[in-house]
Each structure stands twice: as C-alpha cells, then as structure tokens.
C-alpha cells in the first residue's frame, strides 16, 4: 500500500467559482468535434475518478490505469450520450467502480479480505507495512472491507456524495446505501481498534 497523502498538488483540481457549462453540455461539444473541451472535462471528471480509484485500490499506478480507461470509455460513448438521462459524474463513478472491482478480481480472485497482510514474515516487510499503515491507517482498514461496503463508505465519507447519488451509482436503494455505510463504519472501527497494537500505536 502506498502513502496516499503525499501526492504533489497540480493544476487539475475540481474546484472553480466561475459558472461554466455542465459536464453533459461539454460532452456534447466533444462529440461534435470540439477539441478544447477535452481538457475541461479531464480537469473536472478525472480527479473524481482518480480519487475514487485510489481509495478503492490503494495503488497509484492501478488507479491511474483505471482512471484512464474510465475516461477512454467516456470519450468513446460521447456521441451516444442521451442528455437528461443521468448525471455524467454518476456514470463515471459507476464505470470507475466496476473497473476497480474487475481489476481486484483479476489480481486476487480468492483473497479479497487479506489484502493488507504482509506477503512474507521477514522483519523488514513487517516494519515497512507498519510504517505505511501508520501513514494511512484508514486506507489500510478500507482495503479489508468487502467491496460493496468499501464503495459505499468511500463515496459517502470521502467523495461526500449524497445517499441518493450513491444509490444511483451502485444501483441499489437508499436504504441499502445507509445499511452498507453503517456496516462499513462499524467494520472500520473494529479493524482500527484491533490493529492498534499490531501497528504499534500507543494506548490512548
């Protein structure tokens, strides 16, 4: 797992105070051949896909590949997008999640619950894992959640989406989102408390 807090700041942040065309309008212009809007859409949507993929996978290189593929699918489907059908960000979040799940299944088809364990028993590996986990204890715990719980928790508490939005992305009811989020938070609390000694934290 990587330290996810030390990535350099860039000019592709999502915040902007100037009113601009909607994502859907920009996609329509891209479909009509407007080359300039690709940069705008990349700046708006790329960080969202990347942030989600990074939290889902805990690996920068994989998150970049997933984001690139998700955006590639966005460019390809641009002419077929039906305005008003859904928010473009919802579509992109869903594609990103699906790509993350596919990637994790390809890598570890039968060991999704043990992703944070060291691969061997050498002291150097344990030390390295402890150091990494201390830097990002939350990411370490997130990696141990079942996929659906991790998706709901990340979308709700890191991406700060509303429950109806998450329901649309995950194609489930709002009640199911609330249930997944609550179970995910309980699991995280238990994992973090249980790993307190293992990670070398002092008792508080």
């Amino acid at each position: 797992m990587e330290d996810l807090t030390s990535y350099p700041n860039t000019t592709h942040g999502r915040s902007s105070a100037v009113p601009e065309p909607s994502d859907e309008a920009l996609l329509g212009r891209f479909a009509d051949g407007d080359a300039a809007v690709a940069r705008l859409l990349t700046g708006r949507l790329g960080p969202r896909s990347y942030s989600l993929a990074l939290r889902m996978l805990g690996n920068r290189a994989e998150a970049e590949d997933v984001t690139q593929e998700a955006m590639m699918r966005l460019w390809k489907m641009a002419p077929d997008w039906v305005p008003g059908q859904a928010q473009l960000s919802t579509w992109l979040y869903r594609v990103t999640l699906n790509l993350c799940v596919d990637l994790r299944r390809k890598k570890r088809p039968d060991a999704l619950e043990n992703v944070a364990e060291p691969e061997d028993g050498t002291a150097s590996v344990v030390d390295r894992m402890q150091d990494t986990a201390r830097k990002d204890a939350l990411q370490n715990a997130l990696q141990q959640l079942p996929d659906r719980q991790r998706q709901a928790v990340v979308l709700r508490h890191i991406e700060e989406l509303s429950n109806p939005e998450i329901a649309g992305i995950m194609d489930i009811s709002v009640e199911a989102v609330e249930s997944l989020t609550a179970r995910g938070k309980r699991s995280l609390t238990a994992i973090l408390a249980g790993r307190r000694d293992e990670l070398g934290y002092e008792h508080g």
């Binding site: 990349t42 700046g43 960080p47 990347y50 939290r55 970049e64 984001t67 955006m71 460019w75």
Partner: peptide
C-alpha cells in the same frame, strides 16, 4: 482523507487528453 483527495497527476491528465484527441 478528504484533504488528500483533491490531487490529480499532470502526466495522467496528459494521457487522458491524448486519448481524447485520438478518439476525436
């Protein structure tokens, strides 16, 4: 985690925009 969220690598932006131009 939210504070560390809003970062996006420039080289990834270049890769994505290159894809977009190729598709266009």
């Amino acid at each position: 985690a939210r504070e560390a969220r809003d970062v996006f690598p420039d080289h990834l932006a270049v890769r994505i925009e290159t894809d977009a131009e190729a598709i266009r």
